[in-house]
């Protein structure tokens, strides 16, 4: 599997937020997109997820234009936004039932993705009583319900404790190993080793960056 993003352009009130974004990724790869606040990272992901429309550009998966086929896009692409895409008053199980049918949920809870994310530990807890880490794990659990080969994550480990970051990172590695394509935006250096390619989004343009563990060089580049 291969995804290809071509010449994405998006403007808000005369300002060009995304100005010809292009990149490609193969199966089992992770693309990390870095950038300052308001640089357009979240906008890029929401366009690829189909939430927002772009002024120009295309998004291919194995040669099929996902912008033109919303059914295929919703099957192939999982999306975890920055906030909490959950129903606060309901339990983890209720939230999962929005995306999983009963049998699939039970199977995943027994020995699948949901088990790996540790969701079985707080299945009956209402979302409003969960920690940030629990919410994020549950959000990822919901996003991968249809086993999408492409997963878009908007700052997946923001404001989480180390243990939770480690659990999520561990799951994302497994996801990659199974041939999934990850596209994540981040401010967190903890997540950078997970990525195979790095880009800095600056002035609406995507600039390739070679991360070698030198954080100070990264900060200067942003």
């Amino acid at each position: 599997m291969r995804i290809e993003v071509k010449d994405i352009r998006k403007g808000f009130r005369g300002k060009q937020v995304l100005d010809g974004i292009s990149f490609a990724a193969e199966a089992g790869k992770c693309i990390g997109i870095l950038g300052g606040n308001g640089s357009g990272k979240s906008t890029l992901l929401s366009i690829l997820a189909g939430v927002q429309s772009c002024d120009k550009g295309s998004f291919f998966c194995d040669g099929k234009d996902l912008f033109r086929d919303s059914v295929l896009r919703s099957t192939l692409v999982g999306y975890v936004p920055q906030g909490t895409p959950l129903i606060e008053e309901l339990s983890a199980k209720d939230n999962l039932s929005l995306w999983y049918d009963r049998e699939a949920m039970e199977k995943e809870l027994a020995d699948g993705v949901l088990r790996m994310l540790g969701i079985h530990e707080f299945l009956k807890t209402p979302v409003c009583k969960m920690s940030g880490g629990m919410k994020k794990r549950l959000s990822i659990g919901c996003a991968v319900a249809k086993r999408p080969p492409v997963l878009l994550l908007d700052e997946p480990s923001a404001a989480l404790d180390l243990d939770c970051k480690a659990r999520i990172s561990q799951y994302l590695r497994r996801y990659k190993e199974k041939g999934g394509i990850l596209l994540l935006t981040t401010h967190d250096v903890y997540e950078l080793p997970l990525c195979d390619e790095w880009y800095i989004l600056r002035g609406g343009v995507l600039v390739p960056f070679e991360y070698d563990g030198d954080v100070s060089r990264l900060v200067k580049s942003l």
Binding site: S46, S74, Y79, P81, Q82, G83, P85, L86, C142, A143
Partner: peptide, 18 residues
Amino acid sequence: PLFVRRDSSLGMVLRARR
């Protein structure tokens, strides 16, 4: 409290899922 939302993330994901 059920219908006033500051966070539209769920709406975004639902829209992504058509």
